[in-house]
Structures are given as structure tokens and as C-alpha cells.
């Protein structure tokens, strides 16, 4: 009897997964059309939009949020959420700057900052999984804790006076594209492999799709959950390093509200808030949509107050378009 229900729930799970997958793919193309539509509009609205200098600018500007949104994609697919990424970004940017200021070798500074991000993620994951508390609450707590630590370490001031080599990290151009863009692309690749080609990735989809079914099919849910937050934290730490290199300082007050940008990018990209569905390339599209809107509104010099309204409307419209396509 018990074996029977087990089998039943497993088949149900597989069935619902494949159905959701189809829906997910349809959504992905829907959002692609939305993205292209926005780009066509902007290329008419501003003559410089399609110039290579501007397109490189856009890629450069989205790389930080983009790296963060890769981690967020995995976390949301597993049915979780991470509100602490903005604060962890600020914290790790301060950590890498403080290390560099104390003439610790650059590569070590970077590794320390990434490790700090991973540690924060581990705490998020551990408390969420072991304590059986909603990740919304846990990461909300981490959001204020990490910001507080960043303020303590930096004495509330931007950490500057970094070595020249540190700036080159943000400004080195290779084959026309700055280094942060390559880091972003590499992270998309890594995330896609992790999600689509590994057992860990399959487990993430399974847990996000139906946690009970994942549990009975023998997946170690705690372990997977802790790891997904660790990976998310590591990626955020890496993004923190890129942020510090880009602005040339570690800032405790930076990246306020970035968690919302990252979550918006991921959800626009067709990753389901309820978990189990989504593709990193969708999140890439979502990130690009946000970046292109920000860029386009600046190019057209749209008045500040209106920018906020337009941004909000376009985001909702893009997802609406996506929904209609998926039906």
C-alpha cells in the first residue's frame, strides 16, 4: 500500500514536471519576443541605442545584477527566495576593499570576499533547512545583519585607497568587452551546467516542484537546500568583488534594493515564484530587459519621476505577454 502511494506520487511528480517544463519553454520564448519588442522601440527612439559602445555599456551595467540573478534563479527554482543579496553585495564589496587596503594579495582578497558571501549563504541555507523557517524570514534577517556588519567593518564610510591593479579588474577590456561581462557569461554557463546537467540540478527542480515527492524519492533535501544558498552566496560574493572593482571602493551603503532587481529579473525571465520551473537563459533575458529599460530611459532623458512608472509598467507588461504566450 505504502509502496503504491510512493509510486503514484513519483509518477505524478514526473508528469507534472514535464508539463511544467513545456510551459516554461513557451514562457521563455514569450519573454524573448517582449525583449526584442523593447529593443526595436528603443532603436527608433534613440539613434545611439544600437551602437556598439552603448550595447557594451548595457552589458557592463547588468553584469553585477546578472551574476546575482544566476544564484537567485537556482534558489527560486528550489522553491526558496533570498532577500539578503543586496546587503551581502555591500558586505563583500567592503570585505574585498578592506583586505586590499591592508595589502593582502589581490587574489586572496577576492577569495576571502567570495568565501564571506558563501558563509552568509550557508547560514541562510542551514537555518532555512534545519530550522524549517521560511526563507523569506531567514534571509530578511540576514539582510539587516549583513548590512550591519558591513557598516561596522567600514566604520560607515566608503573604503577607498585601493591599489591600481584592483581597478584594472573592472576596466580591463578583452576583445571589445570588459572583464565583468566575461565573468557574467561564465557564470551563466556554470549555472546552466549545474541546473541542467548535474544530479544537484535535477534535485533542485524536484524539490521546487514538489518537496514531499522529492523527500519520498530519497533526495536529501536539507543538503540540497544548504548548497543552493551557499552557491547563491558565493555568486553574490563574486558580484560584490565586481561591484567594488567597478566603483573603485567598498561601500557599506551600496546595492540597496538590488535584491528586488535580481528577483524581478529572474521572475521576468520565466522562473516560477512557486519553484520547480525556470532556465538560467530566461533569467539572462530578464536581466537584459531591466538593463535595457534603465539604459533607454537615460538615453531619452525621460523625467525622473516618470522613469519609475514606466519601469514598473514595462516589467508587468513583459510578464503579462509571457503569460499569454504560455497559455
Amino acid at each position: 500500500m505504502k509502496a503504491n502511494t510512493h509510486l503514484e506520487s513519483q509518477t505524478k511528480n514526473i508528469w507534472s514536471q514535464s508539463r511544467l517544463k513545456i510551459k516554461g519553454y513557451a514562457g521563455k520564448y514569450g519573454i524573448l519576443i517582449g525583449f526584442i519588442a523593447i529593443c526595436i522601440f528603443l532603436s527608433f527612439a534613440s539613434p545611439v541605442f544600437l551602437t556598439s559602445a552603448n550595447l557594451i555599456n548595457i552589458l557592463k551595467q547588468v553584469s553585477i545584477i546578472g551574476i546575482v540573478s544566476m544564484g537567485m534563479t537556482m534558489i527560486i527554482i528550489s522553491g526558496g527566495i533570498d532577500l539578503s543579496v543586496g546587503s551581502i553585495l555591500a558586505l563583500t564589496s567592503v570585505v574585498v576593499a578592506v583586505c586590499a587596503q591592508n595589502s593582502i594579495p589581490l587574489i586572496l582578497c577576492i577569495l576571502i570576499a567570495i568565501a564571506v558571501g558563501g558563509l552568509a549563504g550557508m547560514i541562510n541555507g542551514y537555518v532555512t533547512a534545519k530550522g524549517a523557517i521560511s526563507p523569506f524570514i531567514v534571509t530578511l534577517g540576514m539582510m539587516t545583519v549583513a548590512r550591519g556588519i558591513a557598516l561596522i567593518i567600514s566604520n560607515g564610510m566608503p573604503v577607498s585607497g585601493l591599489p591600481e591593479t584592483f581597478f584594472t579588474l573592472g576596466s580591463t577590456v578583452f576583445l571589445g568587452l570588459p572583464l565583468p561581462v566575461y565573468i557574467f557569461f561564465l557564470m551563466i554557463f556554470v549555472t546552466t551546467i549545474l541546473l541542467k546537467k548535474t544530479r544537484f540540478g535535477r534535485h533542485l527542480y524536484a524539490i521546487g516542484g514538489n518537496e514531499q515527492a522529492a523527500l519520498v524519492s530519497g533526495i536529501n533535501i536539507t543538503k540540497v537546500k544548504v548548497w543552493v544558498y551557499v552557491i547563491g552566496g558565493l555568486l553574490t560574493g563574486l558580484a560584490g568583488v565586481v561591484l567594488a572593482a567597478r566603483v573603485g571602493a567598498g561601500q557599506p551603503n551600496a546595492a540597496v534594493g538590488y535584491e528586488l532587481d535580481a528577483i524581478a529579473a529572474v521572475v521576468i525571465g520565466g522562473v516560477s515564484f512557486s519553484g520547480g520551473i525556470g532556465h538560467p537563459l530566461g533569467a539572462l533575458l530578464g536581466t537584459l530587459i531591466i538593463g535595457v529599460i534603465n539604459n533607454g530611459l537615460d538615453l531619452m532623458n525621460v523625467p525622473t519621476y516618470y522613469q519609475q512608472i514606466i519601469k514598473g509598467l514595462i516589467i508587468v507588461a513583459a510578464v503579462l505577454l509571457d503569460k499569454n504566450r504560455a497559455k
Partner: peptide, 17 residues
């Protein structure tokens, strides 16, 4: 919003025009 990285992106966009 008082932030360095946001100012950087905005001015990059202005300059490219």
C-alpha cells in the same frame, strides 16, 4: 539615490548619447 554605482551607470548612458 546617493549611490556611486548607480551614478556611474547613469553617466555612462548620458555620455554614450
Amino acid at each position: 539615490e546617493w549611490q556611486t554605482d548607480k551614478a556611474l551607470s547613469i553617466v555612462e548612458n548620458w555620455l554614450v548619447t
